[in-house]
Design a protein around this nucleic acid. Structure first.
Lengths: 156, 156
DNA sequence: CTATTTCGGCAACCACGTTGTCTAATTTAA
DNA sequence: TTAAATTAGACAACGTGGTTGCCGAAATAG
């Protein structure tokens, strides 16, 4: 009889799969005019959303302090991915919005992820890939995606 | 007919699965006398190995500079997980070895990972879990596990 | 024996997170 | 309506963990 694989292989394969996809995404993004994007940025853009948000709200969504979120916005602003605007209804708020360049990176990311999934479907078969996704949904929290990735791994 | 899931769900589910396992590992490790262990440490311990290694070699395995590896060793030494020894054959080398406490954390980690895998097997069924592992092996590099995780995500 | 390489440590610097404090603006309560 | 509490954003100081550059000591190649 064959024995079970050691338990530590599972998390490593999951992370490795994630890493392969993210690395290929950013290699392709670099080819398509986004060489400055980093793995973390995609999560930040998702947290900003198409309607924009504020630094404080962004910090809550990312699970970091508002100061850290503000610094991240500074960096993304320098790279031209986001811009700050004023909120006419609340003079305290400075709304962070994706620029055209930032939206472009989101659109391209979505298309590249679809292409990468199609490649996995070629390797595994569409049915197996759907089963894999279904199984992962069963063992992961269903509600929201965790956007506090930056602080989670490196933190304290 | 049902359409394909969007491609971006796959990497997020993979990362989420990884994160769930790592979080549960460290919650259990904290209960078992290792409250100071952090997600990164397991990778570092694997890179050190049972025979020990040097700071320079550790840096190469982790994909960071020897100075960074040395600082990591300093921190783990303060926590009591590793100790430095001298190499009688090479007075330059200072061999880093896991302490009894460090080995204990590795042994417990392995057992906890096995238990977590068993729980996934209860949820998904052993066959589906094996299929999931087999599929992940097909789409990830087969050879070595990437131990340069610390610098990969955060790095500029 | 000399030259080159390698190891470990030190210093300076940078990226990116933290907490604390401050001002201004808004909201809530008396 | 006025006073108090909350919230947004910025600034400073600090901690961690990475980087590069440099150094002396030890091993190795010629």
């Amino acid at each position: 009889m064959s024995s079970d694989p050691p338990g530590f292989e599972l998390p490593l394969r999951l992370f490795l799969g994630f890493r392969v996809l993210i690395d290929e995404l950013h290699a392709e993004l670099a080819r398509q005019g986004h060489p400055d994007m980093r793995p973390m940025h995609g999560f930040v853009f998702q947290a900003i959303g198409v309607d924009g948000t504020t630094a404080a709200e962004l910090g809550r969504r990312l699970g970091v302090s508002k100061q850290a979120a503000g610094k991240t916005v500074d960096a993304l602003e320098r790279l031209g991915y986001v811009e700050r605007g004023s909120d006419p209804h609340d003079a305290r708020r400075k709304v962070v919005r994706l620029t055209e360049h930032g939206v472009d990176s989101l659109v391209r990311s979505a298309r590249i992820f679809d292409e990468l999934r199609a490649r996995w479907a070629e390797t595994l078969g569409e049915e197996r890939l759907r089963a894999l996704e279904a199984d992962l949904r069963k063992v992961t929290p269903p509600d929201a995606f965790p956007l506090d990735v930056p602080g989670w791994f490196g933190g304290h």
